[in-house]
Amino acid sequence: MSKVVGGIFSSHVPAIGNAIAKGLQGDAYWKPFFDGFAPVHEWVERVKPDVAVVFYNDHGLNFFLDKMPTFAIGAAHEYANEDEGWGLPKFPTFEGHPELSWHIIDHVVGEEFDPVTCQKMTVDHGLAMPFALSWPGLAKWPVKLVPININTVQHPLPSPKRCFDLGRAVGHALESWKGDEKIVVIGTGGLSHQLDGERAGHLNPEYDRFCLQHLATDPEALLKHSVLDIVELAGSQGVEILNWIGARGAMDVAGRGSVVELASNYHIPISNTAAATVLLENREAVTA
């Protein structure tokens, strides 16, 4: 029986890719951020997940405003990382898991979600960065990918509750999957940051701490804010927390036992961002 073994949550600032390319992980500016991945490295080495189901947001690589899905699920055999306009080195291509993708799509549509399905899909830094951080230095990713894109670009965005419920539906699908793969869910982006407007550079450690404190044990606390509340609190790109909320929802399967935090790292600043890394693990239900 397949199961969700844990969750990795990570910021995806493009500048992290530059730092990796230049080998700056030990640099004073970057070290407090990269050090946060040591527990993740130990965990993926020990647990060896086979599949990653990733909740992320596209930044204008695969989707443009001509067709902007609220939720989109990849069902491709592979996903290439392509040039996003800056000509940066590309990340290795991701191997897909179309059978699992279609199983998830079947299930979530059965639960009355209406995702766009993508048999061709390119993926940007918003998806790739947590892989480069969690499995550094590899020419081939050790996990297959199912990407789930949430619109955080064009308002109205889906509500936090809707994202959490989508995640839960994905979690139900993963629980009913016939395969025996170990599945890690990944939520990318955030935490507080704002790139645009006169308030550019806005950060909010208080809101970020609230999210980090409740993510493992009481994720529904994060659903009390509306999307606009989150824009006000966390900045216009801080709404990427929706990806974290979706991924956390996928770990939240009734009867599955508890979700525990193994590690949390919060660091200001990485570029314009309050950067965070969280590792959660699903524990089996204890039966008497």
Binding site: P32, P205, V260, L262, S264, N265, Y266, H267, P269, N272
Partner: peptide, 17 residues
């Protein structure tokens, strides 16, 4: 100056189980 304003808010908070 923009970078300095961000650095002035610098902090690191870490928990490991």
């Amino acid at each position: 100056d923009f970078k300095a304003r961000l650095l002035a808010q610098g902090l690191t908070e870490r928990r490991v189980a």
